[in-house]
Design a protein around this nucleic acid. Structure first.
Lengths: 339, 339
DNA sequence: GAATTTTACGAAAACGGTTTCGTGTTAATA
DNA sequence: TATTAACACGAAACCGTTTTCGTAAAATTC
């Protein structure tokens, strides 16, 4: 019952021709006579011949694989990006090899080294928190210095020269805060995280908007949590000790959890307090009340990243120009803010 | 600045030895003298030599890659499974190539054929809805008949002989419904979907529990939606036209959305109506009220699937025995049910 | 000192393709 | 009829490894 994969050699032996003839015949080469071609093609079809990808990769020095390294896969934003990458890459005949750093520097290094040894034609990646905290990018520089194309998205760094795709985190936060100010809010809080490039940018936008809106900055209104873990106690304490009429959160989980905390305290959303979160995932949409959110359009980010990468992979010219593509975000207004 | 990957040939030429000597020296072969080995190893280290994976794959006829095909990646359950697969596979030195069928039969076929031509040592997959509806598994049988190991998880079929990992959907639903009955509920509704093996099994469990609980079956209490799309109108109409005191949903989105509908109608959860959903994702945890949910332990599923696959890949014996591993689910009780 | 065994290494085949180049036949041209 | 061009195919190199086998030179044994 086991019908092993057939190779050119098998076909050649069976039909009593050379391997080269078979190879050419299957590519419909002009060199081969009609008769021979038909015979070979029929045989190949009958036995369902498919060329071995590995052999072709070795010969062509092109794998038609792209490596994607993300910090976490159980994560709405990152999965939308992967989906975008996958769709675009597939359409251009590429496979996607996904590796997870699980926010660990070491795993990021291991995965990159593994894939860099011939398995892929290029990388798309987003930095792990550990890497961003450590500020060590030698593993990445190593890869780019070997001439392997790289596109970074979302969590990027200036330290590495490569193509990048980001959303304008600063502006997005700015606009969100401006919206809150325009709707009359004055005590606008921010819940952010440490060490993350995107979180920092969003924080900048927050401060800038307050400044431009003529609102004095109050450090008590900023709660910085250690990464993405929901520190329930800290959040509870924050809302117990500070009064505010609006909150911007750098991710939706903080926002959703915070909404529950203030609801339990008897506050009404959005009448007493408004909420806006980054990442427009399922939580934002289905929360009660639904959460106004800054959509990051991960799928387009992925598609654009894939396009930049494949263009570079397929472009021999190796021009040393690197672009940074900025994707616009969209503020989706829902029940957690007043219109 | 560009330091291209170095090969055995380069080292051999540079040190004026043969390629075989270099290869052996780097593997610390006894055949090579200490002096030569040290010289070669030092040189290789200096130039950061790493063997080319593709060449090794071709030689060994083993890629150390496993292909994973899932219907959707923006999906909590599937991503947890991928995470489990990835962790386990990495620990055993394997890479994971993720392909998405996007619930499409054609994409599933294309991806499988692509990967089957040498790119991977084995498959882990969950069927797309289209494939389940079509009941056409020739592309899968094709792969297994070539001797490529396959493990199916969650959405499986009896039509294909291979290892499988599933949760006991029927029993899980049974226990959930029994819990509702035991807490005094009598009018228990079910919201399920068409054509999905898991949905069907859950539906069976629902009926069985009612039967065993001595509760007459009322067809009006079952709402079947077309796949995972939240048909808002149908749900609204369902709750407007039927009265019930508990609902079991085959996924968390249906449950979360339904909770909002009944809340808007003025019902109290769980006093007036209880909810239990399958898939214990972020939504269940952060919903208001939080949703009692059947956790599927995707990460263990993934790890077990990966283990079964790699064991088979690495086991030459090719015993033709196939196992079906059943993972226990856990009912996590939260605010949407009475304790 | 001759025979034998080690030692240390290289040549070559193999994995499964692609591609260049050479060549024996036949067909067209002078 | 001799010369050239076109045709149809095969040999061999190559991609980067691994591995088997063969063999000079050195070391050992008798």
């Amino acid at each position: 019952m086991l019908k092993r994969k057939i190779t050119l050699k098998h076909i050649a032996r069976e039909l009593d021709v050379s391997i080269s003839t078979v190879s050419k015949a299957l590519k419909n080469s002009e060199e081969i006579s009609r008769d021979t071609k038909e015979k070979i093609q029929a045989f190949a079809k009958l036995y369902n011949y498919k060329p071995n990808n590995i052999a072709i990769s070795l010969k062509n020095k092109r794998t038609k694989n792209i490596g994607v390294i993300i910090p976490n896969i159980v994560h709405h934003f990152f999965t939308t990006v992967v989906r975008g990458i996958e769709k675009y890459a597939n359409a251009r005949g590429y496979n996607v090899i996904v590796c997870l750093s699980n926010e660990s520097f070491d795993k990021e290094v291991i995965n990159m080294e593994m894939l860099a040894n011939g398995s892929i034609d290029g990388f798309i990646m987003s930095l792990s928190t550990e890497t961003q905290a450590k500020n060590d990018f030698n593993h990445i520089k190593e890869v780019t210095s070997q001439g392997i194309p790289l596109v970074m998205f979302d969590r990027v760094t200036d330290e590495v020269e490569c193509d990048k795709v980001i959303i304008n985190d600063k502006d997005s936060a700015y606009l969100a805060v401006k919206k809150l100010i325009d709707s009359g809010r004055r005590n606008i809080a921010l819940i952010n995280t440490e060490n993350l490039s995107v979180s920092n940018a969003r924080t900048e936008g927050y401060y800038q908007a307050l400044k431009d809106g003529g609102i004095p900055i109050n450090g008590n209104l900023v709660l910085t949590l250690p990464f993405e873990s929901v520190d329930e106690e800290a959040i509870q304490h924050f809302f117990d000790s500070v009064t505010m009429d609006a909150v911007l959160c750098v991710n939706e989980i903080f926002a959703i959890y915070s909404m529950r905390v203030v609801q339990k305290k008897g506050l009404r959303i959005p009448e007493d307090i408004s909420f806006i979160g980054f990442t427009d995932g399922l939580l934002s949409k289905y929360a009660n009340p639904s959460l106004s959110a800054i959509a990051q359009h991960g799928e387009s980010m992925g598609a654009i990243a894939a396009q930049m990468l494949i263009d570079k992979v397929e472009n021999e010219e190796e021009e040393e120009v690197y672009r940074t593509e900025i994707i616009d975000s969209t503020l989706i207004e829902r029940e957690s803010t007043v219109n």
